[in-house]
Write a protein that binds this DNA or RNA. Structure first.
Lengths: 145, 145
DNA sequence: TATTGTTATACTCTATAACTATA
DNA sequence: TATAGTTATAGAGTATAACAATA
């Protein structure tokens, strides 16, 4: 693929991301909140520091986020039996439900937009699904949110 | 296209969006800030109310955003000669430069990820570019940011 | 009266710096 | 000393309600 073609593709993907981003305010969970719940859901209880690194936020930010999620009933905290300094955060059933609700809502918004496209476009997009999935995994081990 | 296939496509696009979204904190301009500068760049001076509607934020939020952009030197305000109540916001050369810098940075981040894909995936994505552009325009008249 | 915009107020989410407790 | 986490503080960015000025 030519370098200029790749640049055009990158630009298109940037525009697509930003166009979907405008829909984000309709959700109740922030990106970091949804990402944190997803990590806890898939990987089990985690320390504050590990969550902060994964979500690319500071440790104090993650402390505050966990406190907000705790007050919403979406996560619980327990002492780490192996390290008296650390605590382990785990997701609750309510947290999993909120996460799935957010995913369904977001999928529905995108699906509504797809429904407006002609069949030809949908075929082209369907053909690109494996490539898109590879692209997702290029730098991002945690995307299923 | 089958409904279930479309749902899978929607899910893939959601995951892609969120994986790119994690790169957003590296930029200095917020989504609303970048979108506002882009509108001013392409459409010329606009009223606060028009900008608020376009960016889907409240009028007071846009007032605050414009004040911050003004203090950064990215926009200027002048009186509307046709309506004493209104003011017109316009982008400065510094604002355009900041906008373009942000676009280049984001495109580069995405391009770096594309560079890691095999040629086969790139071909599939290239074939989906027209469809992606149509998808961008389904609900979003302002995406070139 | 209706519209344009600002101010007042509050909450979320982010950051850095300073601190406490444990390793 | 180093690490895990919290608290203190500040700023960006969002909202609603109340207000001033103009149409």
């Amino acid at each position: 693929m030519e370098r200029t073609d790749r640049a055009e593709l990158a630009q298109t993907l940037r525009e697509l991301t930003l166009s979907f981003l405008r829909d984000a305010p309709r959700h109740d969970l922030s990106r970091a909140a949804a990402g944190t719940l997803s990590v806890l859901d898939r990987l089990g209880p985690q320390r504050i520091t590990a969550l902060a690194e994964r979500e690319a936020v500071s440790q104090p930010s993650m402390t505050g986020l966990v406190q907000r999620l705790e007050s919403l009933g979406y996560v619980e905290r327990s002492a780490d039996p192996e390290d008296g300094r650390a605590s382990l955060v785990s997701v609750t059933a309510e947290g999993v439900a909120a996460l799935e609700s957010r995913r369904r809502l977001h999928d529905q918004i995108i699906d509504d937009r797809l429904a407006a496209l002609p069949e030809e476009d949908l075929r082209a997009l369907a053909g690109a699904v494996p490539a898109l999935q590879h692209l997702i995994s290029t730098t991002e081990p945690d995307v299923n949110r």
